[in-house]
Design a protein around this nucleic acid. Structure first.
Length: 575
RNA sequence: CGGGGCGUAGCGCAGACGGCUUAGCGCGCCUGCCUUGGGAGCAGGAGGUCGCUGGUUCAAGUCCAGUCGCCCCGACCA
């Protein structure tokens, strides 16, 4: 490819809305353009990189026996109503109606469609297992799209689904996919971590995430240096100690706390530690209001509460809803005297004495409230968001915290979808059984952005060789110089014939611009053909190398040295 | 959804408080000359429904209302 013919509009200035480095660099380097909030066009450079990522994903999926298919993006609402996800997935879905007013969604994921497709054809255990996948666009009406490709409303994803007649068979596919994902990440050249994860609205039991390290990532990682445990903070169980006290119970007292609402305000107004306050949070779910109690200095993990109550529709109640129902502004809500509301508490609540809670009356709080005397709890569970320095659930050593970008996610779904969709096969004994299912996602477009987050410097992107749009760029310093031009053409032909993907920068531009573009786009290797050609020299420079290497050309073009340098190229290392 | 902000040339911005002339600047683009090792120089030039709709006014990019779009923060706050 010649640069003079490549559509790669590079920009000196970053667009004003670019917030994270991957967004800025992909935009400036001419990979992407925005069409609407969270919706992007992929220009030729991006398309080449995305195709390479897809190819790696495809090869690794095929290698574990998964078969590629392609399912429709547009899906009828009925399919989603059967599994209850028309409501559960709800606002995240892009919904539309056809001319007859029939409802559809642009698929945010494809469990229903895949299950529907196989249910009538797979009738016997003899046909199992089956593992299908596709690579295509997904649509999620994100509450707030941001960070460019990292949280987009349209994005490219590989999603796979497997169907089994036993847990063992599911385990095999699950482990195979985990290995495939590890190979994908390694071939791309990302630094990553596999963590235990929450399964969220997809449902199911076991689940792991593949997360690439990035400070701007939205996944909170917890890691144990001692035993290697790793998890995200939505999933990690709290296995620490709870503070117990032997304090004698003091009498319950209502105190005037004008305009004091938050835990912090209450703590400073009353001069108590946040850990002495009980936070009372009201949620709304399928069965109405639920009150959750947690120690004031801890965050509540909504995922844990959803799982505990088996209600994915659970959400924090709006202040208006709370006021309408209890006649008390949020901030003064508490468990004392609350009626007709299920109360779920974190285990820690059991051991607290003489606590501060909302007064159930505007501008009042109770002090010295005590469990089973002044208020009551229906059940206890672990509701805490585990934080850095909490003990590791495995070995008790303090956890360390960091951030990452979720690239891949594997789930054991079990029979959630097959049961509700009546997707059954006949087992050896002639009994009808629901398929045991697994599901496996990989964010393709997000991977491109995640790589840029990890691999860049002040001049631009530093692509790993495996997914760079081109492996080599040949920069001709002066197109006026016939020798330079002719020799560059010669290397170009030679490398192309040897199967290297080369971009020849044959533009009539000042050398500065060419160098800047080459660095910005981030090709692994640059060959500069310039004035030193007169002395029989060209320069080779890896993208992460400080100084170029001058090599003698002596008849043979530079291909063997190029091959050698590309082989050794490690974009993560500064050279 | 709540709060804040923005919308003026391809990109980045000024002009708006304090109303009126020909709406500017940098980059980019076009032509010519010159130049070719890190976004060169000189000269000339093209490019604008000032997001949209309506209102106020002699006069609106500027004031008012509505609307659309975009961005940021928050939405685990009690």
């Amino acid at each position: 490819m010649r640069f003079s013919q490549l559509y790669a509009p590079t920009l000196k200035q970053a667009p004003s809305d670019a917030e994270v480095v991957s967004h800025e660099l992909l935009y400036r380097a001419g990979f992407i353009r925005k069409v609407a909030a969270g919706v992007y066009s992929y220009l030729p450079l991006a398309k080449r990189t995305l195709s390479k990522i897809e190819k790696i994903v495809r090869e690794e999926m095929n290698a574990i026996g998964a078969q590629e298919v392609s399912m429709p993006i547009i899906q009828p609402a009925e399919l989603w109503k059967v599994t209850g996800r028309w409501e559960d997935y709800g606002p995240e879905m892009m919904k539309l109606k056809d001319r007859h007013d029939r409802e559809f969604t642009l698929g945010p994921t494809h469990e229903e469609v895949f299950t529907e497709v196989v249910k009538d054809e797979l009738r016997s255990y003899k046909q199992l297992p089956v593992f299908l996948y596709q690579i295509g666009s997904k649509y999620r009406d994100e509450i707030r799209p941001r960070f460019g490709l990292l949280r987009a409303r349209e994005f490219i994803m590989k999603d796979g689904y497997s169907f089994h007649d036993s847990q063992e068979s599911l385990n095999e596919a699950y482990q195979a996919c985990r290995r495939a994902y590890s190979r994908i990440t390694e071939r791309i050249g990302l630094e990553y971590l596999i963590i235990e994860a929450a399964s969220g609205a997809i449902g199911g039991s076991e689940s792991h995430e593949f997360v690439s390290f990035a400070p701007i990532g939205e996944t909170n990682l917890l890691r144990c240096e001692r035993c290697g445990y790793s998890s995200n903070d939505e999933q990690a169980p709290y296995k620490g100690l709870y503070t117990k006290t032997d304090d004698t119970e003091k009498p319950l007292t209502l105190v005037h706390t004008p305009n004091v609402r938050t835990v912090e305000q209450v703590a400073s107004f009353l001069g108590v530690r946040p850990s002495h306050i009980v936070k009372s949070l009201l949620f709304v779910g399928r069965n109405g209001f639920v009150m959750a109690l947690i120690q004031g200095d801890r965050e509540l993990n909504l995922e844990k509460l959803k799982v505990y109550l088996n209600d994915q529709s659970l959400r924090l109640a709006e202040p208006d809803e709370v006021y309408e129902r209890y006649n008390v502004p949020i901030g003064f809500i508490g468990p004392v005297g609350i009626k007709n509301t299920r109360v779920v508490a974190d285990h820690g609540i059991r051991y607290m004495k003489n606590v501060v809670v909302g007064g159930m009356k505007q501008d009042y709080h109770y002090i010295n409230a005590n469990l089973n005397r002044d208020f009551y709890v229906d059940s206890y569970t672990d509701l805490r968001v585990v934080q850095a320095n909490d003990p590791c659930p495995n070995c008790g050593a303090p956890l360390s915290g960091s951030k990452g970008i979720e690239l891949g996610h594997v789930f054991k779904l079990g029979t959630k979808y097959s049961k509700s969709m009546n997707a059954l096969y006949m087992d050896q004994k002639g009994e009808l059984k629901p398929f045991i299912m697994g599901c496996y996602g990989w964010g393709v477009s997000r991977t491109m952005a995640a790589v840029v987050e990890q691999l860049h410097d002040q001049n631009g992107i530093i692509w790993p060789r495996s997914i760079s749009p081109f492996e080599v760029i040949i920069t001709v310093v002066s197109m006026q110089d016939h020798n330079q031009k002719a020799y560059a053409e010669r290397i170009y032909r030679d490398l192309s014939e040897k199967g290297i993907e080369v971009l020849l920068d044959d533009r009539e531009l000042s050398p500065g611009m060419k160098f800047t573009d080459a660095d910005l786009i981030g090709f692994p290797l640059r060959i500069t053909v310039g004035k030193s050609l007169a002395d029989g020299l060209v320069e080779l420079k890896l993208r992460n190398q400080e100084k170029p290497l001058k090599i003698k050309i002596e008849g043979d073009p530079v291909s063997s040295k190029v091959m050698e340098m590309l082989k050794e190229y490690n974009p993560h290392r500064k050279v």
